[in-house]
Simulated scan of single mutants.
Amino acid sequence: MTEHTHPRIYGTDRDGPDAYTTRPGHQYVELAGGPLDGQLLDVTGLTADQRTTGAYLITEHSAYGPGGRASYAPTFNRPDGPWVWEGDVP
């Protein structure tokens, strides 16, 4: 198993060449807790409203099985991250 010094970027292939490389000019938030704990989410294209409401992210490790979603959102006192796991949804 390869040891990585940076967190994996959500949505990348675990073994892909850019799985652990952030892109210049992009903004990321860390995902805390749940099945995607420790990954980074690229929020560059999200609006201010979308950044305050969070997202349902597809995961292979949801309570609903592969393809289920995990709900992540910022906390009231830390709107710029990390986004915390709120639970799984079908």
Rank of each mutant, 00 (worst) to 15 (best):
S62I: 09
R51A: 04
R23I: 03
P74Q: 07
L41P: 02
S62C: 15
T53M: 14
I9F: 02
D49P: 02
P7R: 05
A70D: 10
G68K: 09
Y10K: 13
D13T: 14
W83H: 00
E86L: 14
P90L: 06
Y20S: 01
E3T: 09
D15G: 02
P7T: 08
L46Y: 08
P24M: 01
L57N: 04
T47Q: 00
G81Y: 01
Y10R: 07
G65E: 13
Q50A: 13
G81H: 03
V29T: 01
R8H: 13
H4V: 00
A63I: 04
L57D: 03
G16D: 09
P82L: 10
G25I: 06
P74W: 06
G54E: 08
T53F: 12
G87C: 08
G34T: 07
R78I: 03
H6C: 09
G54W: 05
Y72T: 01
W83T: 00
Y72C: 00
Y28Q: 04
P74R: 05
D18Y: 07
D88M: 11
Y10C: 07
E86P: 00
T52H: 14
P7D: 07
T2F: 15
T5C: 02
V84K: 05
G16E: 09
M1W: 12
L31I: 07
D37T: 11
G65K: 08
E30R: 15
W83M: 01
L57I: 10
F76W: 07
A48R: 00
L46N: 04
Y10S: 07
G68N: 14
L57V: 07
P66T: 10
G16C: 06
H26S: 03
G81D: 06
G54R: 10
P90C: 02
E60N: 15
G33L: 13
E30N: 09
G54T: 10
T21S: 14
H4I: 00
H6P: 01
D37S: 15
E3C: 06
T47V: 01
G65Y: 11
Y28G: 01
D13W: 14
G11T: 12
T44D: 11
Q39E: 14
Q27S: 10
